[in-house]
Design a protein around this nucleic acid. Sequence first.
DNA 1: CAACCGATCACCT
DNA 2: GGTGATCGGTTGC
Length: 208
Amino acid sequence: MNLRPEHRVLPRSFFNRDPRAVARELLGKLVVRREGRNTIAGRIVEVEAYMGAGDLAAHAAAGRTARNQVLWGPPGHAYVYFIYGMYYCLNISCLPEGVAGCVLIRALEPVAGVEEMAQARHLKDLHIQSLTDMRKLTSGPGRLCEALSITRTRDNAKDMVSPGSDLQASDDGFRTRKIKITKRIGIAKSAELPLRYVLDGNSFLSKT
DNA sequence: CAACCGATCACCT
DNA sequence: GGTGATCGGTTGC
């Protein structure tokens, strides 16, 4: 559960592809937040692909607006939006400039900065040996954004594959085992599409 | 410009 | 398993 020092930021070309391919291959990669000398990181264990106009659940389906324009921007940028009056969700843009698509990060397995995560989540008396407690840190799209202090003001449109960025998508060489594909969670339209990708059996998936 | 509602979570029964 | 919290973006009047 330690961050290997040799992890590398993903190349932009990684995100310049169909969101379904990006989603599948993002499993096992890292989201890394740099806060001064602190590093907070989690391994991606659950994601969902969101497509363009044909995907009625995607924000891109409504067309380009001030809120969602990042989806049409260059690949590898954070699309952060505010939801339910109190939470944020983190997506990473896919496909070349002018073509909409993204991957929603739904759950992380804590890798570094557990203390900082617990503080940001306002969780007191977190027992690091308790899986139930550890799951509260980053097992859900709203939870992981709070744990990594991801907000729209701070992070929307941020380049996540730039070496100097304080929010990065990174690869430490972790090899995934079995991947499971299911329907997406919490949506009404296009709900039947199999676009959710998880590391099968991982303890840090959202829900139970 | 008022009304609606969502890619959620915590807490309750 | 159910529901209240809470608010910005979008839509419809």
